[in-house]
């Protein structure tokens, strides 16, 4: 069931588009930190919770988690041998990724509250 989600061309596109976006975002974030190193807490919080950055981070999280899902799923499909183990590990990874997503989203929402 889990296996049927996100396969073939859709998975391929999600993996590549997410990768390209994450690379752009990482370069932007690295540049921002280089231009303005060692921010204070207030500056850090204001930057992260601004509308533009929140949107950028939210999209980054979506790209990251879907990219991780496609990649980890590929690895499990190749190496997790008995089918039962494979199904269980896919389910486990899927739930772990969802939890990380909820957790990260909570941090973002809390910062903006």
């Amino acid at each position: 069931m889990v296996k049927c989600e996100f396969t073939g061309l859709a998975a391929w596109v999600v993996q590549r588009a997410g990768a390209a976006y994450m690379l752009c975002f990482a370069i932007f974030a690295l540049a921002a930190i280089t231009v303005h190193p060692r921010p204070s807490y207030a500056e850090w919080k204001a930057w992260v919770s601004s509308d533009a950055m929140s949107a950028g981070i939210g999209l980054f999280l979506l790209a990251l988690l879907t990219h991780m899902w496609v990649g980890l799923r590929d690895v499990l499909l190749d190496y997790a041998k008995p089918e039962g183990v494979q199904r269980a590990s896919l389910l486990l990874i899927g739930m772990a990724l969802l939890s990380v997503g909820v957790w990260a989203l909570q941090i973002l929402v809390h910062a903006r509250a």
Binding site: Y41, W44, K45, V48, L64, M68, G71, L72, V75, V100, W103, A104, I107, H110, A111
Partner: peptide, 25 residues
């Protein structure tokens, strides 16, 4: 890729800590 995936929860934790309050930062 697997190493990066394994490290993600820790970075989320660190990010959350830095966002919480002055002390966490």
């Amino acid at each position: 890729g697997v190493l990066l995936s394994v490290s993600i929860p820790f970075w989320v934790y660190l990010w959350g800590l830095s966002m919480r309050d002055e002390q966490g930062f």
